[in-house]
């Protein structure tokens, strides 16, 4: 199968997920019900006020996380480099925890206190990673990844310390936040996410060729005429907007960002002109699907979407990775 067909398949798949997902869930919804009004309006209210914004949020978050992962893998020329392996979720979680525990008010337009704090935490970690790459001579990617792991451990013990000293109520809120989730009502989350994800996505879309060149290494990329520092800065900027926004709204659901780009690399190759649309659609559809699963598997209870992404994605990823025929396409 060539990459064009795979791409068409991805688009059809995500359209299907996108249109079917809002109908799945506890309350049965009929096609006629969604346009009913008055006393029959329950179906319509569930559909338009709960299901649709939730599907939109999941799609935006999934696409944004997957594209961010793709961009970081190109930036660092390393399959393990994603904003999350560099400690972004730790930063976001620490921000959120600090806010819940201490109630430090951070009034960012369009964000509640927790989301604002998480956004700042995530962006600070990405800026830290950027700063480290800019230091005299930069660091090897391996060093940076190790630093990310160390930072994650450090931040999680800070979070544990905050949690230990908190009361039961705050502590539970924090644990629930750390699991990630999309259980929001209304369009606030969509309205917060849309401008951030759209800006980031558009930036990455325009930099597809540059991401291709990044995989050739610094010297070749520069000798082909690329302004390396400027492109790096733009990519970091795009990723921090998206990831900051998504993590602050949905919690740390990072696995999507590592796995989806790799699945797409295995299937369509590394050329970002094909990879970008594949990652965009599969990322969105995958998180939509996981969120739908989270809603229906244990209904009426709902399990956190972060649990599902890893449960579904992990084995599938391993399968792809150890399939020799597919693996030969990564290199």
């Amino acid at each position: 199968m060539n990459s064009r067909w795979i791409l068409i398949l991805f688009i059809l798949f995500s359209l299907a997920v996108f249109f079917v997902a809002p109908f799945a869930g506890m309350t049965k919804i009929s096609l006629s019900g969604i346009f009913a009004s008055g006393s029959d309006g329950i179906e319509s209210a569930v559909f338009w006020r709960i299901r649709v914004p939730r599907v939109l949020t999941a799609f935006l978050a999934g696409s944004g996380l997957a594209l961010s992962g793709m961009a970081f893998q190109a930036l660092f020329r390393n399959p393990l480099a994603t904003p999350f392996t560099l400690g972004v979720s730790g930063g976001a979680a620490f921000g959120a925890a600090l806010y819940m525990r201490l109630g430090v008010v951070l009034a960012l337009p369009g964000f509640s206190g927790t989301t604002g704090a998480a956004f700042l935490g995530a962006v600070l970690v990405i800026l830290l990673a950027y700063g480290l790459t800019r230091l005299q001579g930069g660091f090897a990617t391996e060093t940076l990844l190790l630093a990310g792991v160390a930072l994650s451990y450090f931040l999680s013990s800070m979070i544990l310390a905050l949690q230990y000293s908190a009361n039961l109520h705050d502590s539970f809120r924090l644990v629930r936040w750390l699991m990630g989730g999309l259980g929001l009502v209304g369009y606030d989350a969509v309205l917060t996410l849309f401008p951030l994800v759209a800006t980031g996505t558009a930036t990455l879309f325009l930099l597809r060729q540059e991401m291709n060149l990044l995989l050739l290494g610094d010297d070749l990329a520069r000798s082909r005429g690329m302004e390396l520092q400027r492109i790096r800065l733009l990519l970091f900027f795009a990723v921090s907007l998206m990831v900051g926004g998504i993590v602050s709204v949905c919690g740390p659901i990072g696995f999507v960002g590592m796995m989806v780009p790799h699945i797409c690399r295995l299937l369509v190759g590394n050329d970002h002109r094909h990879l970008f649309p594949a990652v965009f659609f599969l990322g969105g559809a995958f998180l939509c699907l996981c969120d739908t699963g989270a809603r229906i598997f244990f209904a009426p209870a709902e399990i956190p979407v972060g649990v599902i992404t890893a449960l579904l994605g992990g084995p599938f990823f391993l399968l792809l990775l150890f399939n020799r025929k597919l693996r030969s396409r990564v290199q």
Binding site: N212, G217, L220, R224, G225, G269, N270, D271, V330
Partner: peptide, 23 residues
Amino acid sequence: YVPQAGNMLIPYTVYAFVLMARY
């Protein structure tokens, strides 16, 4: 610039790689 191609890992097809030089 033509570096030593020996041990560089370039994850593209020949055509895609050469096309990038038109950047």
